[in-house]
Design a protein around this nucleic acid. Structure first.
Lengths: 229, 229
DNA sequence: TGGCTCATTATGTCTATACTTATTCTCGAG
DNA sequence: CTCGAGAATAAGTATAGACATAATGAGCCA
């Protein structure tokens, strides 16, 4: 347990009151000044605790309106998105990598719209990541050839996944999860039947210099992503 | 843009320096006192900005060790987990609900282990959620009959999803994402072919009084969950 | 009634200061 | 040369006070 008077202790007590029904859903709770007086601490400490709960979706706070327990809380689940090699190694397995294709191709319409790509051909890189020699995830990536030219950046030994994180870090983008049936190519590389249900992550990455990449990571059947609540 | 001297402005400037390469991956950045002097603000303000970046996985901070830019940042993607009705309504569609089954059954082994269930039969509730009269998600739930007795709590009109959020809020649990092929039942209710790839969320919920529920939400084919980076 | 302004209010944020704590570094003993 | 005690360091946190800001609501005027 935390020592009393710390913001963690106040957060825990607030949570307890919500669970116990002292602060029922929909109700407004005492304001920061009152709670600070009750707990015998500074208002900033109460603010820290309640702000933390609000960020997790467990409280709703509005200036002047006060703080209330939401009727239907919108909880937040967070995934840790590491590079694939670290993901595999974090499971205590050996990471393997195999480049399948690296060629210039006209991107499909879905990729064009997702990235807002106006130009012609993009660099299409396909690769397989292995965990203890078994297929783990299929990486299907479209790269802006102006930002990642094929004659200067090679992906034979280092995956595009890893290269991008190291060299074009901290860019913005979207991320989405979906399920898709394995097509012939995915089935072949992942060693499953065509049509098998695959968990996939699609991500677009942009910088100020323009679109960087669209990638779809298709995990081998049975893969499960754990999130923290 | 933020006015200078605010913690958001400092966070933005720190991000800019990382992107620009002023603070390259692996490097240690100036400590809080130095940055506070540079930006002409209090150390607490710098702390707020850097703590925020660290929470997002964009910085690594250690006492005495200082703050450094991670070599391979572990970014965090967060999903908003709302109750299904709100999810549907948030898309501007009409939410529909239909109870399929509500019966006492011995739970399958996977459910027993996920919940740590020692007893016999559990309450098995299956229901379909609709968006504009089209199948949206199939809810397959196992409930602790001691905590949610069938003779007192009915799910004909209010989904278990919603009832639980309102009545047993703020409990702890795990959440995981996976892809699974539609079985005969799922195919029938979701109106898709058997074997179709479904995005599913599995969640276990526990309270101090014991396990509450295990639920698997299987989304209709094509569903995509967007996360925020 | 409708809409405008202005005071009120609770949260949001910043400051200066102090103390705490985890971690690293150093230096001396064995 | 290794190990362990203790010093040094940078982040973590708490505090009192102040001001900023976004809602709300009251009162006024048309």
């Amino acid at each position: 347990m935390e020592r009393p008077g710390t913001w963690q202790a106040i957060r825990a007590e607030a949570l307890r009151r919500m669970r116990a029904g002292d602060w029922p859903p929909g109700e407004r709770i005492p304001d920061e000044a009152e709670l600070a007086a009750e707990f015998g601490c500074a208002r900033a400490t109460v603010n820290r605790a309640l702000r933390d709960l609000a960020e997790a979706g467990l409280l709703e706070r509005k200036r002047k309106g006060g703080t209330r327990v939401p009727l239907t809380p919108v909880r937040k689940a967070t995934f840790e998105i590491a590079i694939i090699r670290r993901d595999v190694e974090g499971r205590g397995q050996r990471h393997g990598y195999r480049l399948i294709e690296d060629a210039l191709r006209p991107p499909p319409e879905a990729v064009r719209t997702a990235l807002g790509w106006e130009g012609g051909a993009m660099r299409h890189v396909t690769a397989l990541h292995l965990a203890d020699d078994r297929p783990f995830v299929l990486e299907d990536r479209w790269l802006n050839p102006a930002l990642v030219p094929a004659d200067r950046v090679r992906f034979e030994t280092v995956s595009a996944n890893e290269w991008l994180v190291r060299n074009i870090p901290y860019s913005s983008g979207d991320i989405g999860f979906l399920a898709r049936p394995a097509d012939a190519s995915a089935a072949r590389w992942l060693g499953c039947d065509a049509g098998a249900a695959l968990l996939a992550i699609e991500r677009t990455t942009r910088s100020e210099a323009g679109p960087i990449t669209f990638v779809r990571l298709s995990y081998a059947p049975g893969h499960r992503m754990e999130a923290m609540l």
